[in-house]
Amino acid sequence: MVLECKHVWTHISAYLDGTLDPTLLAEVQRHLEHCEICSAILDSTRNILVLTADERVFELPLGFSDRLHARLAQEMKLAAQDEPVRLPE
């Protein structure tokens, strides 16, 4: 069985968790040996897991929360304007 990239991508999480059955694991590994794109996706996914598992806390820049809330309010207002007007039946 030859795996295509889209099939490998669906198994990246299980691959990293070590929960793939041995036959599928061998196929994924064989694919990763030759596919730069899937190897890059694997590395990126692994990096994201490392970063999100890190217990360090980063302080947000001064005023970030205010800017975020203002932007969200603006986006919600624009989205509400784009919604069709519903007339009562």
Rank of each mutant, 00 (worst) to 15 (best):
21 D>V: 10
11 H>Y: 06
49 L>C: 10
79 A>M: 07
85 V>H: 13
63 G>L: 03
81 Q>N: 08
65 S>R: 09
49 L>N: 05
11 H>S: 05
73 A>C: 03
37 I>D: 13
21 D>Y: 04
22 P>N: 10
83 E>K: 15
81 Q>V: 07
45 T>K: 07
43 D>L: 05
87 L>V: 08
57 V>Y: 04
77 K>C: 04
39 S>F: 09
48 I>V: 09
88 P>C: 04
72 L>P: 00
66 D>N: 12
40 A>F: 03
5 C>H: 07
86 R>I: 11
87 L>Y: 09
55 E>S: 15
52 T>K: 01
78 L>M: 12
55 E>Y: 03
25 L>Q: 07
9 W>I: 14
6 K>W: 13
47 N>E: 11
71 R>P: 02
65 S>L: 14
25 L>F: 09
1 M>P: 07
55 E>N: 15
57 V>A: 06
87 L>I: 14
43 D>Q: 13
37 I>F: 04
47 N>K: 15
30 R>M: 10
37 I>M: 07
57 V>F: 04
54 D>E: 00
16 L>H: 00
58 F>K: 05
59 E>T: 14
29 Q>Y: 08
56 R>L: 10
49 L>D: 10
6 K>Y: 08
82 D>I: 00
14 A>D: 04
76 M>N: 08
10 T>E: 13
49 L>E: 06
89 E>W: 09
22 P>R: 09
52 T>L: 13
62 L>M: 02
65 S>E: 13
78 L>I: 10
17 D>C: 02
74 Q>L: 10
61 P>K: 03
89 E>P: 15
10 T>W: 03
65 S>T: 08
64 F>W: 13
10 T>P: 01
75 E>Q: 13
47 N>G: 11
80 A>Y: 05
10 T>H: 13
8 V>H: 05
5 C>I: 02
74 Q>V: 00
70 A>N: 07
85 V>E: 11
84 P>T: 10
76 M>E: 14
48 I>M: 10
85 V>K: 13
51 L>M: 07
86 R>P: 03
59 E>K: 12
27 E>N: 10
53 A>C: 07
70 A>Q: 12
4 E>L: 06
46 R>M: 11
47 N>V: 01
3 L>M: 14
55 E>T: 14
18 G>S: 04
61 P>E: 06
47 N>H: 06
82 D>A: 11
64 F>Q: 12
9 W>R: 14
13 S>T: 05
